[in-house]
Every structure is written in structure tokens, then in C-alpha cells.
Amino acid sequence: MTETIVTFDKVTKKYYRTPALKNVSIQISRGKIVGLIGPNGSGKTTMLKLMSGLILPTSGKVSVNNRAVDRRISSEVAYLSEMDIFYSFFTVEDMIKYYHAMYQDFDLEKSREILAFMELESQKRVKELSKGNRGRLKIVLTLARNVPLLLMDEPLSGLDPIVRESIIKGLLSYVDIGKQTLIMTTHEVSEIEPLLDSVIGVKGGEIRGVAEVEDIRSECNKSLVDWMKETL
């Protein structure tokens, strides 16, 4: 059952001359919630963008769902960017319709359900939403897609505890674990720990460690934060 959803094969990514990832090889199994953790500038976002086809490797190969990644992998990958990507004059409803038009796999019914769960008003304009509600809207748009791979770049960063909790519960309620794989970067490590199956520690463009979260606790008697301090 440990089929692979993502493979990095000796992947190097340079931005001009600066290497962001150095010869990374890793396989990520399907049907899990995986945390990508590491300090700022360690290469986490670069890894996510490589999986989503937003950028291409300088050398090496990335494949997702048994396909080499190019721009068209977006039909199998939902990517939640750390930045706001909305047209501010759109209403929440417009955004839903826009996504529905953009992606064949966008599940309109599911989006309404998650929208209600997040208590978002569909007639509000994006520019009128608080930062927390923009964060929630991004989650709605990402989770409503029926794709095998969900990528989230810092879905919790800068949001208050109540918004963070609603997002965590939203992920647990609407990610179809078993069928879908969720890979997320985060700095809120202790908060997200109970959510994760496994973690990948990244630093300086290299992978410093991969572990199952429950193993870190049972075998090393350590929390994820302690593991991070030792590994990174």
C-alpha cells in the first residue's frame, strides 16, 4: 500500500547561480499528511513549486503520480500559495466560479460545504475579507479540488489561533486521506504535529531527515520540536 506519489531523483534547482536545492532524492508515499519543515530559505517552497510544476529543476527529475512534472501537472495537483493570489474585486462566489471554470476536478458541492464550514459569506468581496478569512478562502479553494496531491505553503502562518484551529479541522474533515496526499510547509510545528503522519526536515537545500512522527515519540521519546532541533 505504500505506493509513491512524489519522487525527487537527484534534483538540483538554482535561481541564477544560487542553489536552492542540492541533489535531492526522496520518495513520498501516498495517502499521508506530510510536513515539510525547516528554517526560512531552506528550500521548502522550492520543493513545493517543483512538485506543482510552477518551476522546473535545473537538473534531475521530479515526478508526481507516476508522471514527469511539467506545467500540465496542475490537473493532478492543487497548490495553496503563501501569497494572496486573488483578484481583490472578486466576491467569494466569483472566486468559486472562477476555480470551477479553471479546474475540471473542482467539486462545486464540496466547495459550498467547506465554505459553510468556514463560515464565509459568499457575497463578500475578497478585499473586504480579513486576513484570516482570506486564509480560510484559500483553504476552501484548495480542498474543493479532487486531485491526488494537495500542496500547501504555510497555510497557518500569520493567522490567529481560532482561524488556525478552523483550518486544521477543515483539513481533517475534507482531505480524503487514503486517496489524497497532503504535503504542507509550516513553522507551527508543535501545533501541526498531531496532524502529521511523517516529516521531512530540510535545511540549506538538503534533506536532513525523514521520519514517522509517532516513531519519533515512541522510539526516541521526543517531540517533533526536539527532533527538529537535533536534525536541522
Binding site: 499521508k32 499528511i33 484551529e165 486544521i168 479541522k169 481533517l172 474533515s173 486521506i177 498531531p194 496532524l195 502529521l196 503522519d197 509517532e214
Partner: peptide, 17 residues
């Protein structure tokens, strides 16, 4: 399993285990 996972805020695989 899913309801318990949501209630506790933990991964469903953990509840399953």
C-alpha cells in the same frame, strides 16, 4: 475514526491505530 480525528484534532491514521 474521522469524527474522533476531527474532535481531537489529530491525523485519522493515528485514531485508526
Amino acid at each position: 475514526v474521522r469524527d474522533m480525528a476531527i474532535k481531537l484534532g489529530v491525523n485519522p491514521n493515528t485514531v485508526q491505530r
